[in-house]
Amino acid sequence: MASYTAFLPSAARGVLPSCRVSLRERSIAPFLSVFQQQARGAKTSSKVDPAKAKRDNRSKDFKQQSLKDMEKFALCDAIRYIRAFEVGRDPSSTKYEVHIRLKSMRNGPVIRNMLRFPHAVQTESRICVICPPGSRSEKEALAAGAALVGEKDVFDAVKNGVIEFDRLICHPDSLEALNKASLGRILGPKGLMPSAKTGTVVEDVAMRVDMLRGGTIYRERDAVIRLPIGLLAFSPEQLRDNLRATLDQIKKDAAAINHIVNKEIYEVVLSSTHGPGLTLNGDFKSENSPSTADLSVL
């Protein structure tokens, strides 16, 4: 059919088949359905190939964009801008934060650890301990300063959406009860679910509570580590000390998994609760920076 319509002028080609359809409707329908089936088959086979090709082409590493056009700042200049953006905000709740971009593979182990700053950022984090009621570890955890200790009552509170803690530690004796309570769906996305891997399922609960109270946990997500590193009221020197401690610790963490993957720090961005993110150039001061005493005034 197509063979003789091919010789007709295009306008006639449009008109003719429509006439024919009205004449031979029964025979055209199966033809059409066959055509559609073929099209569908052709479509799926062609769909698989590019997807496969795409998967193969994707880099194994996270893409690193060139920082050539990015403006970089000395620490004091970045602080000056951030303080301008944070003017009039509540100084007790606004914090400096740092985003550390790593050169890293897409898969493989990620950096996750905890660190203690030279100048504490959070005054106290509330820690919840799950352990069998009436056990020795319950007493110890309470003595170490855990905010919430229990088993059944904690599960019930979490199921009701009442999560009044920032960290969750579990004693191995209660692990089975915890898994039975199936709280993974609630706690998992918040990063609170205890697991031996993160060091939150431990025998010595009291020691862990003591460690966690002053520490900040961080982890790498999509090749970036984000963590708060100071209160807005900190002086540039205090912030520098905290930043240095953070970077040293992360370098150590990277060195620890050096035999599996190679990770290095690519970019360090200083930001704040309401402020923009400013890429740091590694200097403390530039010649235009105001005095550090001025930068400590809220």
């Binding site: 000056r80 303080r83 301008a84 003017v87 809220l298």
Partner: peptide
């Protein structure tokens, strides 16, 4: 005034304490 002017004032006068 807080939104527009205070950040600029704070930028040029980091040593002046400003509260809102």
């Amino acid at each position: 005034f807080w939104r527009e002017c205070l950040p600029r004032l704070k930028y040029y006068n980091p040593g002046v304490s400003m509260s809102v």
